[in-house]
Nucleic acid binder design. Structure first.
Lengths: 356, 356
DNA sequence: TTTTTTGAGATGTACGTATATTTATTTGAC
DNA sequence: GTCAAATAAATATACGTACATCTCAAAAAA
């Protein structure tokens, strides 16, 4: 069994307390009410309550009820500890972000407490609860799917009253928590602009559809094309989802792809890994990448260095560093500022100048 | 009812502990034994044990039993915080290691406090000092260059007296701190063995000389060659340093490399990035990689997935996970154990079977 | 000999039932 | 209106059952 039922109840109670639904001293739902709410047996509910009692969240009074009673271990002393919550660590942009955060924070004598959510809301809840317990001086969060309604939103709302917060990549606008993010629209614009300036007119693109940055980069791409009055043939713009990767670039779909990108002299790719896919695709079909077709990627990853691929760098390190600086500023002065990170094209040899 | 049954059991256990019948660390009667002894139900016994656990008299270990473990509350109070110190984060093996550590620790309700040393001794010193201040429950360390004399060695010696430690990748043998590391010798052996079993006899290799794993992988490589009585031509083994990367694989040295690997049907590469270098090198010189020359890499990185490169996986995730488990074991029981991580070959299409 | 599998024993999770004790509110007698 | 009794609601104690999961050592296989 993945998460025991009693643990579900525990997490729920904890997060409700942290949200502020039940305040210190107030009466919690009775065992019977919790039974009905979760449709668990009374024993299971009692186990959860008993655990929380031992952890110092609740107090039971026989015959009366269960009450929130938070034991404040130590007062509001400085911990010089910052919580950093991210969705993933293995995707190649995150290590750089963390590096940026770590460098700034350690220069200011802060430690990092790291949490990884794997884009799962429940994991995020438990990390947030444990950070509240630990009393951090501030948090930097890359929230789980910010487009969807997130039950942790209320915890964040509670959080920001006492503890400085900074979001990175995405945020909940209604919460008024500052955001540090890369400028994907500008990145898409620059990529297209870079090709156009070197004489390319028929430009294809590959974007990820199930991802916010994908849409933003497309927006920037189109902006550049319109600025130069270049008609965009939608056929040349390929949208894919994570699931498409399985078959779309393995060779089976080459005939389709050839038609989609027929006559294109340059391709803007969603990221460097996609650029690699396209390079392999062209090689398989006797089209020389970089020479016959210019290619431009995103992320300026290790991959692009090895491939000698021109790539749009969104300064992942700076994103982390500036987020950390914004947080420290907020801790010191209370001033809430966000940042948009600059993008930059790292020139390598994958784009050919075809002007006469 | 005057005194509840569970209280009777509690009092009995307490007095037996105080009498010295069961000493600290010793195994208490099992739930079933207590059931029989008192003729109470298992739930009642469990309640008594659970209360004593919360009072700091007992500890339950699932699948093993209930043990006497008397906690002295005040001084060394639990922080449920583990320090993790690594040299780098951006090199591609580290995120996986951290993921392994994080998963195990968060399952056990520990937080991670992350420190990055960038292989600099002074940075390591300041991180260690700040962790001592923070009173972590344990640390997992990837030490800075363990071959060199490290002034932090004494800090570690102090550390390990009070706080459980685990080293990963490398350690200072004289400190007697357990080590979790990958088995590079075995990895080198497996890579060579894999090629030999598929009919390759003239096998080249590229190893990193300024790095411990490079030497270990070479050692394993030679072991396999000797086992099959294959004479190794030292000319076919290329050693490089970090600095060599600048010019050795950019094309200028192709003539030299061609001579070095003349006639080789397979190449063992120090890691996947080096494998990519070799692939590019062969392509430049009209030798079809994978077809004319089999190639095997190390690390099973994203790169190898994209290149469809057979690679030796040293289970970076497991390294982190097992190190974390070893640390938790040490915190709970005081038992100091290290682990050697298994290696495994991830088969893809870069090695050709050339047996007749 | 070494490695793998099996199995017994231990704790963990979960449900059901029944009765006891305490608290707080409502009801009813005065 | 006041006070005591009845009642409802809440937690406390206690037993039974079932199956899940983990540990460790013994047995079996390589």
């Amino acid at each position: 069994m993945s998460t025991p039922k009693y643990a579900i109840v525990q997490e729920w109670i904890k997060s409700e307390i942290n949200k502020g639904t039940y305040k210190n001293g107030e009466k919690m739902l009775s065992e019977n009410e919790l039974m009905e709410k979760f449709s668990f047996s009374r024993q299971t509910i009692r186990l959860a309550i008993s655990n929380l009692e031992n952890q110092g969240y609740l107090e039971k009074i026989k015959g009366s009820g269960t009450y929130v009673r938070i034991k404040n271990n130590n007062s509001n002393r400085e911990t010089r500890n910052i919580g950093v919550i991210i969705t993933y660590l293995d995707e190649y942009i995150f290590p750089e972000i963390i590096k940026g955060i770590e460098n700034v924070l350690s220069d200011n004598n802060y430690n990092i407490t790291l949490g990884i959510t794997y884009n799962k809301v429940e994991k995020e809840t438990s990390i947030l609860n444990s950070l509240i317990n630990k009393k951090v001086d501030g948090i930097i969060v890359e929230g789980t799917k910010s487009a969807m309604p997130n039950p942790n939103k209320e915890i964040y709302a509670q959080f920001k009253k006492h503890i400085p917060c900074i979001f990175i990549n995405g945020s909940y606008p209604e919460l008024d928590i500052p955001l540090c993010s890369m400028n994907d629209v500008e990145g898409g614009y620059m990529a297209a602009n870079y090709l156009i300036e070197r004489g390319h007119k028929k430009i294809g693109a590959v974007f990820k559809s199930d991802d916010m940055p994908g849409h933003k980069r497309y927006e920037g791409f189109m902006k550049a094309m319109h600025k130069y009055n270049i008609n965009v043939d939608e056929k040349n713009i390929l949208w894919y989802t994570t699931e498409d990767l399985e078959f779309l670039f393995k060779g089976d779909a080459d005939a389709i792809l050839l038609k989609r990108f027929e006559g294109c002299t340059g391709i803007v790719c969603y990221n460097d890994q996609m650029a690699l896919n396209m390079i392999r695709f062209f090689e398989r079909n006797n089209i020389k990448p970089f020479d016959d077709v210019s290619i431009i990627g995103f992320d300026n990853s290790t991959l692009s260095k090895f491939l000698d691929l021109t790539s749009v760098d969104h300064m992942k390190y700076d994103l982390g560093a500036l987020a950390a600086e914004a947080l420290i500023k907020q801790i010191k002065t209370g001033e809430k500022t966000g940042v948009k990170i600059k993008t930059e094209i790292i020139e390598r040899s994958s784009v050919k100048d075809i002007r006469n």
